[in-house]
Simulated scan of single mutants.
Amino acid sequence: MKIVIIEDEFFSAEKLTLQLHKIDASIEILAVLTSVESCLHWFRNNPEPDLIFSDIQLEDKESFELFHQLPIEAPIIYTTAYNQYAIQAFKQNSVDYLLKPIDIDELRAALKKYEYQTYRMLKKSHLTRPEKPREDYKERFLVKKGSGLTVIKINEIAYFKSEQKLSFLVTFDNVKYAIEPTLDQLTEQIDPKKFNRISRSRLISLDSIKKIHPHFNGRLKLELHPAEEEEVFVSRERVQAFKDWLNS
Score class of each variant (00 low, 15 high):
44 R>W: 15
211 K>C: 08
80 T>P: 04
131 E>I: 15
164 Q>N: 09
227 A>L: 03
11 F>K: 11
116 Y>D: 05
32 V>W: 06
216 F>E: 15
195 F>I: 05
22 K>C: 09
113 K>T: 00
211 K>N: 10
51 L>M: 12
65 E>H: 14
211 K>Q: 11
47 P>S: 01
80 T>F: 04
111 L>D: 00
13 A>P: 02
220 L>I: 01
116 Y>H: 10
167 S>P: 01
232 V>L: 00
143 V>L: 14
193 K>C: 11
201 S>M: 03
160 F>W: 11
123 K>W: 10
26 S>Q: 09
173 D>I: 05
48 E>C: 08
97 Y>E: 11
52 I>Q: 12
66 L>E: 06
39 C>W: 09
161 K>P: 03
91 K>F: 09
130 P>H: 04
112 K>C: 03
222 L>S: 04
82 Y>K: 14
122 L>Y: 05
56 I>S: 02
125 S>W: 14
190 I>D: 04
214 P>D: 03
167 S>D: 13
118 T>C: 10
73 E>V: 07
83 N>V: 05
180 E>C: 01
236 R>V: 03
19 Q>T: 09
234 V>T: 08
60 D>G: 05
154 I>R: 13
41 H>P: 12
165 K>D: 12
43 F>V: 07
229 E>R: 04
154 I>Q: 07
22 K>L: 11
237 E>D: 13
45 N>G: 10
79 T>M: 10
117 Q>N: 09
7 E>P: 07
46 N>W: 00
88 Q>H: 15
148 G>K: 10
87 I>Y: 13
113 K>A: 00
176 K>W: 10
20 L>W: 09
9 E>F: 12
54 S>H: 04
142 L>H: 03
69 Q>I: 10
110 A>V: 09
22 K>I: 01
235 S>N: 01
135 E>R: 15
203 L>C: 00
43 F>T: 08
164 Q>C: 10
192 P>C: 06
126 H>E: 14
61 K>T: 09
106 E>S: 08
30 L>C: 13
189 Q>N: 05
108 R>G: 02
242 F>A: 05
152 I>C: 07
133 P>R: 11
32 V>H: 13
191 D>H: 07
112 K>T: 02
106 E>P: 03
77 I>L: 06
110 A>Q: 06
98 L>K: 14
41 H>A: 14
53 F>A: 08
144 K>P: 05
